[in-house]
Design a protein around this nucleic acid. Structure first.
Length: 1037
RNA sequence: GCCCGGGUGGUGGAAUGGUAGACACGCAGGACUUAAAAUCCUGUGACCGUUGAGGUCGUAUGGGUUCGAGUCCCAUUCCGGGCACCA
């Protein structure tokens, strides 16, 4: 029997399905293990070879853990709401549900092809009403809860209402809006129902509110901060502007501290934790109120992390949008300030970010008073202070902060040193905390550690400031002005949002006629007919992509439950995710928001752990290797004519003038012969206007004009003599206007990369070409012809008759035409080979370009492994004889290494160990069941099809998936003697064979007795001999 | 600018502080074959020397710790990623 993946792989996939081999139960005596892959979005492009990398690794782990006696949950599903399907719907009118369904079917086919051990009965989709019923339900809980800072957890709003009616909000410490009014019990009880509801929105964990948002006109939607990169939308690269809109928000800031502290309890990659820490951006400092001179009640509050530098504060800076700016500005400075505000407002995010070095600002004319020393400090405004962060005002300390220093230097404001260690303050700011304070009143002579508490104590005593912790994290915008997302289970009555009744869930997404905003600019849901709740209009925005993905991992535990998001029984069995694997690009978006929801659900007692995933591993991206072709521009043909036709073939035809490319005003024609007044124009025959124009000019100049169509040149590109002949004929002719008459066949010319060096780089347009028509950077012209871009193309080949392409490593994506489809690989080599090859590429955490060089090594390994079981005639040759020591050693070495390496997710070295064992057993002609059977079991997680086949060939009737993982026995690795390397001063000089149980003294004696050792000691005294048992001997001389 | 990763043969990559380059690709030579493919065997870090003789150098660069450093420490440099007027 020959190894034929084409036959055995479909056979076993059908068998597994029939036998429900991968069905997982929620009840078991075995310990549980939950392995999760990050939720894929089913894009229209299908799966490429980068996607399965992580899935294969977790599949191996799943199968391994199962063999080690765990009940393993490893589910798969789809994050099936999203922008691309909606964009597609706008273009085609096809309902996103329909295109999404199609994409999912394609994904599923591709996944099935690779032989994954998913329990598909647990599949979930976020766009399924049975799923989003619970997304909506969780949203309703968020609406019904507020964050109590004293309890340090979420509590029901009904509790808050009780407290308000009893004693108002003065005693309530809770996460709420900055502008939450103070309210006594009497005031609260006097409020109307409507007023009370509006008041409570200041506390609810999800609430509608006016906020500056990232509005993307091109996408017609707001974007969250993490969806904006460098001032443009991450998806599509469209401009994004700041816009004040009424939006649903999530009060994630309430959980800022817990999200930060939680990071210390989970085993996640440091880089992800760091990104989340940056995003949360906790800074500990103090807030200080500066009185404004002559402005009565007005104060400016600033936040600083360096309260110790306050004696060096020589001015204040407000954001241009700061609410006090207009009040403070003196009449003398009003014009300046107004024009600066106007200028700052006109600047986009991109402008601001690209010109961070430029110092701009304006003086308000007003002065504040430094509360510590009574000094007058001028108040300026500048856009380097951000309205959205802190209080929108800073105290500027030019000696310690570089931006303040730049500002002070530019506007000639004083720089006061405050620490005796500060240096070179005329060159730059020095932010040191070392040394002792100078020029600093009450803290003179103190150190940083002493000064900070002293200052904060003083501030709090005087009631003008306090120690404060500030976060960069903003509340998350939760509304999308989009159709293809979860409807928000809210209706509006008299401007107040109310939840719909829980029994009316799910609120199902209605059909609409067009997937576009309404004429009045309402979101698409504004088009839905009858979209109201007992006569009250529903919320029109939908939820963002991260809503469903923030809790989906619980749904897998109990995917068909209609009475709860997940039963208590299921969640208490599966608890949390033990191993989570996915891309690092979700560091903030998905991974932070899902932690937030989980903390909330934990507060409600819905889930058993604060963190839902104890261990997270990031898979590296598989990059694509793109190929490029070079399309000739008109300029190329001018160069070509000169280089290949005129110079070599027509040099005898008299003096010639040429136009330099780009200087067409000076030279009217591309080429001009003195002979017979002939001028030549090279252009496309589609440029009719240009031809007419040149023809008129030529007539006026008394020149004869020959028009050479580029298309004509393309047809004969490899035959310059043909073109030369035509020009010769034209030179002889007397006609005033000569044009190549034939109908050209080709329209574009692609020039081989190997020929480019001869021409100006500007003569070509570099274009991506589908890597599937390129082999080893050589274009397969026959295949390429089938592509639309080459339909009417000709190719200029190099002397070898080849068209070579250039290449680059880029992200693998459809638009770059570098996508390699796993199906093709599976069809050619089989799923097992594909799986093992992806693992063999290197550590899963590393990014690497896709390169199929080397897949033959894995392929031949599988055939060699198969060859241990069958002879050339296909007869099974496995014997029941007792194995010899060498065979056992090879086996147990393999068991040891593979077991250790799977545990640390080092799948690439596992594959190596299988190869080593196979090579060794072939050398030994080993065909013994006692050796081969454990190897088949170990291979099963990696190559499940071949292992299942061999397992059955060995006479088993059950699945190899249920076999027990072999146990490694140290005994077989021991040997009587060990070959010790001997080093002299750390350099390897000799080897010696010694008994395994040799003593240090014996080893030393034996080593020193060796001739080579004596030679290297060379009579010098031996200072020391280091003996590491089982390892090596080092002689120090 | 700040914060993380990381630099090992022609290539992908191995290596609990203990024989650097496992395993694989590629390449070269050989066997089988009419031939090719497939398969199998041998060699393959560089340099000098040998042709069963060994030696020197070698993990980005420079220093250090150690009997011993790819591995630990310090500095430099290059590459990749993240954050960035965040007070």
């Amino acid at each position: 029997m020959e190894y034929s993946p084409r036959d055995i792989e479909p056979k076993w996939r059908a068998w597994w399905q029939e036998n429900q081999t991968y069905k997982v139960d929620n009840q078991s005596d075995k310990p549980k293990y939950y392995i999760l892959d990050m939720f894929p979005y089913p894009s229209g492009a299908g799966l490429h070879v980068g996607h399965p990398l992580g899935y294969i690794a977790t599949d191996i782990l799943t199968r391994y853990k199962r063999m080690r006696g765990f009940n393993v949950l490893h589910p798969m599903g789809y994050d099936s709401f999203g922008l691309p399907a909606e964009q597609y719907a706008i273009q085609t009118g096809i309902h996103p549900a329909e295109s999404t369904e199609r994409n999912i079917r394609r994904y599923r086919e591709q996944l099935d092809n690779i032989g994954f051990a998913y329990d598909w009965s647990r599949e979930v989709r976020t766009s399924d009403p049975a799923f989003y019923k619970w997304t909506q339900w969780i949203f309703m809980q968020l609406f019904n809860y507020y964050y109590d800072l004293d309890a340090d957890k979420a509590l029901p709003v009904s509790e808050l209402v009780k407290r308000l009616s009893r004693s108002g909000n003065t005693g309530i410490r809770a996460a709420c809006d900055d502008d939450t009014p103070v309210c006594s019990a009497g005031e609260w009880n006097a409020m109307s129902e409507r007023e009370q509801q509006l008041f409570l929105l200041h506390y609810r964990l999800t609430y509608p509110g006016e906020a500056y948002v990232n509005w993307c006109p091109a996408l017609g939607s707001v974007l969250s901060n993490d969806e904006v990169k460098d001032g443009v939308s991450e998806r599509g690269g469209h401009p994004v502007e700041r816009k004040l809109m009424n939006q649903w928000n999530m009060r994630i800031t309430a959980y800022a501290d817990r999200l930060l502290e939680g990071l210390d309890t989970i085993d996640w990659p440091e880089s992800i934790k760091e990104q989340q820490r940056n995003w949360i951006g906790r800074s500990v400092g103090a807030s200080v109120r500066f009185a404004v001179e002559g402005a009565g009640d007005h104060h400016i509050e600033v936040f600083t992390t360096r309260i110790d530098t306050i004696f060096g504060a020589t001015f204040l800076v407000l954001a241009p949008e700061h609410e006090l700016v207009r009040t403070l500005t003196t009449d003398a400075h009003r014009t300046d300030i107004e024009s600066y505000i106007k200028w700052a407002a006109s600047r986009s995010e991109v402008d601001r970010m690209s010109e961070t070095k430029k110092v701009t600002g304006a003086f308000t004319g007003a002065y504040a008073v430094n509360p510590f020393n009574g000094e007058r400090v001028p108040i300026w405004i500048s856009e380097y202070v951000l309205a959205g962060y802190g209080t929108g005002a800073i105290m500027a300390v030019p000696s310690g902060d570089q931006r303040d220093w730049n500002f002070a230097t530019h506007f000639k404001l004083p720089v006061i040193p405050i620490l005796d260690t500060q240096k070179d303050l005329d060159q730059a700011a020095d932010p040191t905390k070392e040394g002792r304070y100078v020029n600093s009143g009450m803290i003179n002579g103190m150190t940083y550690e002493e000064a900070v508490p002293a200052l904060i104590a003083w501030l709090e005593e005087k009631g003008i400031g306090k120690g404060k912790t500030q976060y960069k994290l903003r509340n998350a915008v939760f509304s999308r002005q989009r159709y293809w997302g979860e409807p928000v289970p809210v209706y509006w009555s008299d401007g107040v949002p109310y939840l719909i009744d829980e029994k009316d869930l799910p609120l199902v997404l209605p059909g609409i006629d067009k997937y576009l905003p309404t004429e009045t600019g309402e979101p698409p849901l504004g088009r839905a007919e009858g979209w109201n709740y007992h006569g009250h209009e529903y919320e029109l925005s939908t939820m963002p992509g991260w809503a469903g993905s923030s809790w989906y991992f619980y749904r897998y535990m109990d995917p068909h439950n209609d009475g709860a998001f997940c039963s208590e029984q299921a969640v208490s069995y599966w608890q949390q995710v033990d191993f989570y694997l996915g891309g690092a690009e979700h560091a903030v978006g998905h991974l932070l928001y899902s932690r937030f929801w989980n903390h909330f659900m934990y507060d409600l007692g819905l889930v058993p752990h604060r963190e839902y995933a104890m261990k997270l591993v990031n898979q590296g991206m598989i990059q694509g290797r793109s190929n490029f072709v070079f399309r000739a521009k008109e300029r190329f043909f001018e160069e070509y004519l000169m280089l290949k036709v005129l110079k070599p073939l027509l040099s005898d035809s008299g003096p010639l003038a040429t136009s330099e490319p780009g200087y067409e005003e000076e030279y009217k024609y591309d080429f001009a012969f003195e002979t017979n007044d002939l001028v030549i124009e090279v252009t496309s025959w589609q440029q009719e206007e240009k031809i007419t124009r040149v023809r008129q000019t030529a007539a006026a100049d008394g020149k004869r004009l020959m028009v050479l169509y580029t298309e004509e040149l393309i047809d004969h590109i490899n035959d310059p003599e043909k073109t030369a002949g035509k020009i010769r004929a034209a030179l002889q002719s007397r006609e005033g206007f000569i044009v190549t008459a034939q109908m050209p066949k080709c329209e574009q010319l692609y020039v081989s990369q190997s020929l480019l060096y001869k021409y100006d780089p500007e003569s070509f347009t570099k274009l991506h070409v589908d890597v599937n028509v390129v082999e080893a950077d050589v274009l397969n012209i026959e295949k390429a012809r089938a592509l639309p871009m080459f339909e009417k193309a000709n190719f200029k080949l190099d002397p070898k008759g080849q068209y070579t392409c250039s290449h680059e490593i880029e992200k693998m994506s459809k638009s770059k035409y570098n996508v390699v489809n796993p199906d093709d690989m599976v069809a050619e080599y089989g799923a097992d080979c594909f799986r093992m090859f992806e693992m063999f590429l290197g550590p899963i955490t590393d990014a690497k370009p896709w390169n199929t060089q080397g897949i033959s090594g894995v392929s031949s390994f599988l055939r060699r492994f198969w060859g241990l079981f069958f002879d050339e005639k296909g007869q099974q040759i496995v014997m029941d004889d007792a194995p010899v020591r060498e065979e056992l050693r090879a086996l147990h070495n393999c068991i040891k290494k593979v077991t250790e390496d799977i545990e640390r997710m080092s799948m690439n070295t596992c594959v190596s160990h299988f190869m080593i064992a196979t090579n060794e057993l072939r050398r030994l002609n080993s065909t013994k069941r006692a050796i081969l059977e454990p190897l088949v079991v170990m291979l099963a997680p990696f190559g499940p099809h071949i292992a299942e086949e061999l397992w059955h060939q060995l006479g088993h009737s059950g699945s190899v998936c249920d076999a027990a993982w072999p146990v490694y026995d140290e005994e077989y690795l021991k040997s009587d003697t060990i070959t010790y390397p001997i080093q002299i001063n750390g350099k390897l000089r000799a080897n010696i064979e010694l008994p395994a149980n040799v003593t240090a003294a014996d080893a030393e004696t034996a080593a020193l007795a060796l001739e080579q050792v004596q030679k290297w000691i060379d009579g010098k005294p031996v200072r020391k001999v280091v003996f590491v048992p089982g390892r090596m001997i080092n002689v120090v001389v």
